[in-house]
Amino acid sequence: MALNKHMRGQGVVISVPMIWMILLFLLPFLIVLKLSFSEARLAIPPYAPFLEWVRGLPRPVLHWNNYAFLFTDPLYVASYLYSLKVAAVSTLCCLLLGFPMALTIARARQPWRNVLLMLVVLPFWTSFLLRVYAWIGLLKHNGVINNLLLWLGVIHQPITMLQTDFAVYVGIVYSYLPYMILPLYANLEKHDPLLLEAAADLGARPFKAFLRVTLPQSIPGIIAGSLLVFIPAVGEYVVPSLLGRSDQLMIGRVLSDEFFENRDWPVASAVAILMLVLLVAPIMLFNHFSGREIEAHK
């Protein structure tokens, strides 16, 4: 097997995507890191050079001001905390709704299993932006839900749902639900039904069998699904922009505003780096679990 020619062919196969990803994934982060230590300037590009030449030698100039600024202005700290809260609540809701759904799919007979799986995945293939937009029509003051509840006589005044935390949770759970269900399904599908039968034979009621047999086995799936929802949700931009509050921004929106509205590139970079620092542990955990758990992706 280990022929020289063979190895050279492997080298090409490995290095082409490797070089691409280093250039377009890794290198950009180093540039963001570098820029987060630069000083903003009213120029094009709007930041000071990173290297200073001292006696013919380059020396990096590290400005910690951008980071200091993020901690002194309560707006940023509040946005980070709010984003973490929204992501955590949404992930929990996704899990509570997604787990029973994944379980149903995994225990359904064919061809039902494939049909249900397709029904869950189908919205995932249609425009995310348009699906979030659809909620505006449902949640509005004179939207479908309010009109329905008024007509049924459940409420007498329309409820304000749009531009609230509730709307953001709904939007995020809605758009990320398949990301929770797929890894959970991939895990649950592999469980041996004989274990449940054994538990039943030994006198365990279905709920107890679920708690003692199914749940412990599905922990890797729960972790993979939760991370797949939680990590991108922290930086979510579209959902809070369309459905969320205007008095409390999520950090993704803050980053984008810093960059496009204030044109403060160094502060925007520092916002991004700090977000990465918060997410680095979950991302590493995800890398660890994903190898096994997104196998049955799609």
């Binding site: 991108p232 922290v234 991302i283 890398n287």
Partner: peptide, 9 residues
């Protein structure tokens, strides 16, 4: 990592 990386970053 890019699968979960927030898009703004």
């Amino acid at each position: 990592a890019p699968l979960v990386m927030p898009e703004v970053i």
